[in-house]
Design a protein around this nucleic acid. Structure first.
Length: 508
DNA sequence: CGAATTTGACCCGCGC
DNA sequence: GCGCGGGTCAAATTCG
């Protein structure tokens, strides 16, 4: 019987299914070439089967499968054999169908792999192009090293796991999802209708409402009440509720060097509290926007514990009122960043668009300035204007998953290109994440000081609306190509360009 | 004197 | 259930 196995055509089936890389090729080719050999093998097999039939080797059943097609020519007329042969025929047909199906699937997978490879190559080329642009603007040798390092990291990562190249696809698919779930269109009308708060505000205020409802007093809450209650009264979007538990607030944090007690972002703020935060000898000040009665925007200002020249300003919420040009730059940036976080977290149920994933899909060359921290209690985008674009500093730290290069080719060039251009003025745009690694890499950890252009860095936020708007546009474009903020930012650029840079830092 | 700031108390969520 | 820490409130205080 063993000789039969070695010669029988069926022997090749396990090979095709067990073989490693050979399987893909041999499995397909051998299966069809097998038919050519079949007559020879089948004769041998059938002869052997007849001879050995009395032994009732079940194993022969499988062998007969191969010989089924020619069984009639060899059939000796035994009825039991005929029945068995019919069954064998059926099984053979089933196996053949299954094999064909596997072949089809194999080809489909091959096609997918090819497509992924093509996408990866295109992304890599695109990244290289962007890097070159950045290098031209920065014209620093270190940057080329950085870019090279980035590209190499990306390529290494791509090669490491099969799942990694798929991420771009997920990211590409991400945008429509964001479009669907994002309330950015609503946000756009916020300035006209305070009650029409976006998710950002909703989420921010929901937790707050819980408390305030318990209190139900506070004359000041009159101003807050409309906004506070709006999300509760109209929880039209279940997404909001689902998000509330996961991420109650989205926060945009700006790190900048400034001697001033707080950076001038064009808005009017009123201090309503101050606390000593744990782990930081510097007090944390709480401000709320007073440009409109019910404006939900608040910000926290705190100096970095390690480097007190660094001012950390965290913004929450979106202004529900028209902003002066001086404030638009920062507002658009923070709003876009907050939207990015909120949007990315919404369909968290499917696990594709949680902050972790979102952070992983951030621009690779935006690695110097913005950090996404999705760690509890709420996600934060940190725009770090204190860092120097020193590549070694930046790219020694980030864990591998930060390095997935994902630049939607159809979306990035303009906005991100402009951001890159402005990056030359500052440090760069970094999006990384510490979702599960808050303990390993603190986004607020002080970065090495590379320049004393503190005012330049902080003033840059407001003094260069191009940058902030471009950053906002870039962020928005990453999330969804048609994010309203893109258009807004363009307008804002136009608006702010004319009244640029003088309104930035009265304190400085 | 009105507005803004300060500051202690309070509330709430979370971890133990 | 309790303590801790973050966030907010609002009376008191300061400032212009």
């Amino acid at each position: 019987m063993f000789p039969v196995n070695s010669n029988g055509g069926s022997k090749e089936e396990p090979q095709a299914s067990d073989g490693g890389e050979r399987r893909a090729v041999l499995g397909e080719v051998d299966f069809f070439s097998e038919k050519k050999k079949k007559p020879i093998n089948e004769e041998q097999v059938n002869a052997f089967v007849k001879k050995e039939h009395s032994r009732e080797f079940n194993l022969n059943t499988g062998l007969q499968l191969v010989t089924g097609s020619d069984e009639s020519t060899v059939d000796d007329g035994i009825s039991s054999d005929a029945a068995e042969d019919k069954r064998a025929k059926n099984e053979l047909a089933l196996l053949q169908i299954e094999l064909e199906r596997m072949n089809v699937e194999n080809q489909r997978l091959r096609g997918m792999l090819t497509q992924v490879n093509n996408n990866y190559t295109a992304l890599q080329m695109h990244l290289a192009t962007l890097m070159q642009q950045q290098q031209q603007h920065n014209s620093r040798p270190a940057d080329s090293t950085q870019q090279h390092e980035i590209v190499e990291r990306k390529s290494e990562e791509k090669k490491q796991g099969n799942g990694v190249p798929i991420v771009p696809r997920q990211f590409m698919d991400l945008a429509p999802g964001v479009e669907q779930t994002n309330s950015s269109s609503e946000e756009r009308t916020i300035s006209e209708s305070p009650n029409n708060n976006n998710n950002n505000n909703n989420m921010m205020e929901l937790s707050r409402n819980k408390r305030k409802i318990g209190r139900e007093e506070t004359p000041e809450s009159e101003g807050w009440a409309p906004n506070n209650k709006a999300p509760k009264l109209s929880p039209s979007k279940p997404i909001d509720q689902s998000n509330e538990s996961a991420m109650r607030k989205a926060r945009v944090s700006v790190r900048a060097r400034s001697e001033a007690p707080m950076i001038a972002d064009g808005c009017q703020w009123r201090k309503y509290g101050q606390k000593m935060a744990k782990g930081n000898p510097c007090p944390r000040a709480y401000y709320r926007c007073t440009m409109a009665v019910g404006c939900p925007v608040r910000k926290q200002v705190q100096r970095c514990a390690e480097d007190r020249t660094i001012l950390i300003t965290s913004y929450e919420g979106t202004h529900n009122h028209p902003l002066p040009p001086a404030a638009m730059a920062m507002a658009s940036t923070t709003s876009a960043a907050a939207n990015m976080l909120l949007s990315g977290s919404m369909p968290s149920a499917d696990g594709l668009m949680n902050p972790n994933f979102l952070a992983r899909t951030m621009l690779p060359c935006s690695s110097n300035m913005a950090t996404i921290s999705a760690s509890a209690p709420f996600p934060t985008v940190t725009l770090d204007l204190t860092q120097n674009p020193n590549p070694l500093q930046q790219f020694q730290r980030p864990p591998p998953q930060f390095q997935v290069p994902l630049i939607p080719q159809s979306q990035t060039p303009q906005a991100f290109g402009q951001a890159l251009y402005n990056q030359s003025k500052f440090s760069g745009l970094q999006m990384s994440q510490d979702f599960n690694e808050a303990s390993q890499s603190q986004p607020h950890q002080p970065q090495p000081l590379f320049s004393d252009t503190l005012s330049a860095a902080t003033a840059a936020i407001t003094a260069d609306p191009n940058f902030t708007a471009a950053l906002a546009a870039a962020i928005s474009s990453i999330i969804g190509g048609s994010h309203p903020n893109n258009n807004n930012n363009n307008n804002k650029n136009a608006n702010v360009n004319t009244s640029n840079s003088n309104n930035s830092f009265p304190g400085n």
